[in-house]
Amino acid sequence: MSVIYLMVPLAILLAFVGLVAFYWALRSGQFDDVETPAQRILFEEIKEKKETLK
């Protein structure tokens, strides 16, 4: 059972990595605008369609 002494801090550490990743995303502005990127992703598709038509 003493493996718990290792597992529990490790589990918390893992979750902490996730938290740090979230903070990185937050600071780089990924949560500032959640609407436009959802639309922007559609642009390339339209462009490709046009090219294949040519």
Binding site: A11, I12, A15, F16, G18, L19, L26, F31
Partner: peptide, 24 residues
């Protein structure tokens, strides 16, 4: 002002702590 960022940061931290405390 990036109020939203600050608030989200706090919520994330609270969620992290709260979740782990519950696990334990």
């Amino acid at each position: 002002k990036s109020e939203v960022r600050k608030d989200l940061g706090k919520i994330a931290m609270a969620g992290f702590c709260c979740g782990n405390i519950m696990m334990m």
